[in-house]
């Protein structure tokens, strides 16, 4: 079953067409990477699929629900934004309790699921530390664990590694793979070209459209000089 399937999804802001007739699908346990420059429409597409933004036209089904069933969608997906999305002055556990409760989880379930993720991260002993006291490299991985706490079948990551160093990035990707192996579908937008290779399938967005789609190996084969960067529009001379 496809967790995401859209058909000619379009969103305009005034005259500006941010997302232009995008049709894309994401299968179960698949990691789809959205690549593109600033303003290519990645964030707008993700926001629509999360139910945060109404499409101008087109239809989509997300996590088994129609796009206008926003409350149901929100309940069944996870989301992590560009900016660090945990509360700095709460402890790791308190953050988990808060987000878990928001998604209607019981205290026991939160503890169980939370300690499982902390174990995967190897930071079980820091559960009662304030988030701001933790090394910055761990925080995004923690934010991902919190987004996964209610065991969503689909998770959206909007430039989750923006500003992260490679050590922290690998840490986060390890968690993403764990989630995908558990059957969760992942949609991730990124600026890092080398990160594209981490995804199962990538879609390159440009001016609101998906210009190219395929596995990283496939696209690299097609790219001039076998470099992904060359898939982007030629730079002005």
């Amino acid at each position: 079953m496809d967790l995401v399937s859209t058909s000619e999804l379009t969103r305009c802001f005034g005259d500006f067409v941010a997302v232009n007739k995008v049709s894309v699908r994401v299968g179960q346990g698949e990691i789809l990477g959205l690549l593109g420059c600033n303003g290519a429409g990645k964030t707008t597409l993700i926001r629509m699929l999360c139910g945060l933004l109404k499409p101008t036209s087109g239809t989509a089904r997300v996590a088994g629900f129609d796009l206008h069933q926003t409350e149901m969608i929100k309940q069944h997906i996870g989301y992590m934004g560009q900016h660090f999305s945990l509360f700095d002055d709460l402890t790791v556990l308190e953050n988990m309790e808060f987000f878990g409760t928001i998604y209607g989880m019981g205290r026991k379930a939160i503890r169980a699921e939370g300690s499982l993720w902390l174990e995967r991260l190897g930071v079980s002993s820091q559960a009662r530390c304030l988030v701001k006291t933790l090394p910055s490299g761990w925080r995004q991985a923690l934010a991902f664990s919190v987004a996964m706490l209610h065991q969503p079948g689909l998770v959206f990551l909007d430039e989750p590694t923006s500003g992260l160093d490679s050590v922290s990035r690998r840490k986060l990707w390890n968690l993403i793979y764990t989630a995908a192996a558990g059957g969760t579908s992942v949609v991730v937008s990124t600026h890092y070209l080398d990160e594209a290779s981490y995804c199962h399938r990538i879609a390159i967005m440009e001016q609101g459209r998906i210009r190219l789609e395929g596995t990283p190996e496939h696209l690299r084969q097609e790219a001039p000089g076998h470099q992904l960067i060359n898939l982007f529009a030629p730079r002005p001379a």
Binding site: G36, C37, N38, A40, E159, S162, G163, H191, L193, I229, F232, A233, R235
Partner: peptide, 11 residues
């Protein structure tokens, strides 16, 4: 170049 799209980074 942090947080900037690949093309601008090259520029």
């Amino acid at each position: 170049t942090t947080g900037i799209d690949p093309r601008s980074r090259l520029e």
